[in-house]
Amino acid sequence: MNLAFISHPTTPNALRAISALLTAVAKEKPNVGYIASQPDPDREFFTQTQRLYRSLNAQMSVYLELESGFSHEALNALLRCDVIHLSGGDTQRFLQAVKQRKLIAVLQAFVENGGAIVGVSAGAMLLTPSIASAALCGDEVSEEESALSAVNLVDFQFVPHVTEEQSNQLHFKQQLSELKSPCYLCSDNDAVLQMGKELLLYGTPTLYKNPAK
């Protein structure tokens, strides 16, 4: 199982983590597919991400939107890729779209069959047991806990974009204590990489375990 949990994709440690994952794919030029967290009509974010992967000697030619522009043809092409990139955005909206398209089991099977996934911010939180952690980085999370269950490929949650000032705030600590799973807190220049059974940390991610749980 090869998974990258990224806060911000263009920081040095994020690029190191993505590069390591691409190397593990063991192809001269891995093919990466992109899932948009919400419509990107001008393909602005897709184009930026294409450039990023091109700089890492990978190609990205598949774009999948999950809302009105959804295409089964694009989904089939995506599942033939070596790597899937889950974009950042509104975490709850992204999860709802993934569930509406019945992609939870599809993504789980993709990984079980040897595919790799890079999750950025919201996309990274989707890979965990629950997106409840999205509330800690400013997302509005309004559903009941049971509706926040996600792809569940690892046993920890993920909080991107954490600053030192934020981590010392009482409200942040209270929100953190409500999470059901251990959680990695990552600044923009931190990344977590699951490579098989090995967990690799880039930068200084902090693992929070609630002593009461």
Rank of each mutant, 00 (worst) to 15 (best):
Y63K: 09
Y63I: 08
Y63H: 12
Y63C: 06
E65S: 14
E65H: 09
L66V: 09
L66Q: 07
E67L: 12
E67G: 03
S68Y: 11
S68V: 10
G69E: 11
F70K: 11
F70M: 11
F70H: 12
S71D: 12
H72L: 14
E73G: 14
L75V: 10
L75H: 11
N76S: 15
L78M: 11
L78H: 07
L78T: 06
L79H: 08
L79N: 09
R80D: 14
R80A: 15
C81T: 13
C81A: 14
C81I: 09
C81K: 09
I84N: 01
I84W: 06
I84Y: 04
I84K: 01
I84R: 04
I84D: 03
H85S: 08
H85T: 00
H85L: 06
L86G: 03
S87Q: 08
G88A: 06
G88K: 00
G89M: 00
G89P: 02
T91C: 04
R93M: 09
R93Q: 12
R93D: 08
R93G: 09
F94N: 01
Q96G: 11
V98G: 06
K99I: 11
K99E: 13
K99G: 10
Q100M: 12
K102P: 09
K102S: 15
K102N: 15
I104H: 12
I104P: 07
A105Q: 14
V106Q: 13
L107Q: 11
L107K: 08
Q108M: 10
V111L: 08
V111D: 06
E112N: 12
E112I: 03
G114N: 05
G115E: 05
G115H: 01
V118F: 05
V118T: 01
V118E: 01
V118H: 04
G119L: 00
G119K: 00
G119H: 02
G119T: 00
V120H: 01
S121M: 03
S121W: 00
S121Y: 00
S121E: 01
A122M: 05
G123L: 02
G123T: 02
G123I: 01
G123D: 00
A124M: 03
A124G: 07
A124E: 03
A124Q: 04
M125F: 06
L127K: 05
L127I: 08
T128K: 01
T128L: 07
P129G: 06
S130P: 01
S130K: 05
